[in-house]
C-alpha cells in the first residue's frame, strides 16, 4: 500500500488519503477483506494527526469502501461488482466533463472533440 501526501496540493490531507485508498480499492489493488493499518498506525507512519486519518477512514466507510469491526480493525468492505462499475463510470464521466470544459474554453466544436475521441480509441 502506497500513500503519498503532497503539502503543495490544494486538496486537504484527509482527502488525499481517501482518494488514494478509494483508487486502490476500485482498481483491485486492495482486495475486499484486506486489513488496513489502524488510524493511529497510519497517522504515525504518514506523520500526520490521528484525526486526519480517522476522517479519511470515516469518509470511505460512509461510501461503502471500508468497514470497521469493533475491536478488530478496519477492512476493505466486500465490493459489489455493479457498485465498482458505477464508481468507475463516475470517474470516467468526471474526466470527460473536464475534457468538454477545456474544449469549450478553446472554442472546439462537439464534432471536433468526437473526432479526437475516435482517434484516441483506435
Amino acid at each position: 500500500m502506497k500513500i503519498i501526501i503532497r503539502n503543495s496540493s490544494p486538496d486537504p490531507i484527509y482527502k488525499q488519503i481517501s482518494d488514494q485508498l478509494r483508487g486502490m480499492i476500485i482498481t483491485g489493488e486492495l482486495k475486499s477483506g484486506e486489513a488496513l493499518p489502524s488510524i493511529r498506525n497510519l497517522a504515525r507512519d504518514l506523520r500526520i494527526s490521528v484525526i486526519t486519518t480517522k476522517r479519511s477512514y470515516e469518509d470511505l466507510e460512509r461510501e461503502g469502501f471500508l468497514e470497521t469491526v469493533g475491536g478488530k480493525g478496519t477492512f476493505v468492505a466486500p465490493q459489489n461488482r455493479e457498485f465498482i462499475k458505477e464508481q468507475k463510470l463516475k470517474i470516467i464521466e468526471a474526466k470527460l466533463f473536464e475534457a468538454v470544459d477545456e474544449a469549450r474554453m478553446l472554442g472546439l466544436k462537439k464534432n471536433e472533440l468526437k473526432e479526437m475521441l475516435d482517434a484516441l480509441y483506435e
Binding site: P12, I13, Y14, R47, I48, S49, V50, I51, T52, R55
Partner: peptide
C-alpha cells in the same frame, strides 16, 4: 502543523478558538 489533532489559540488572555486542526 502535522502532528496536532486539536489547536487551541490564546490571545490576550482569551481563547480565540479551540477546535480540530483540520
Amino acid at each position: 502543523e502535522k502532528i496536532a489533532d486539536y489547536i487551541t489559540f490564546i490571545n490576550n488572555g482569551r481563547i480565540v478558538f479551540s477546535n480540530q486542526k483540520d
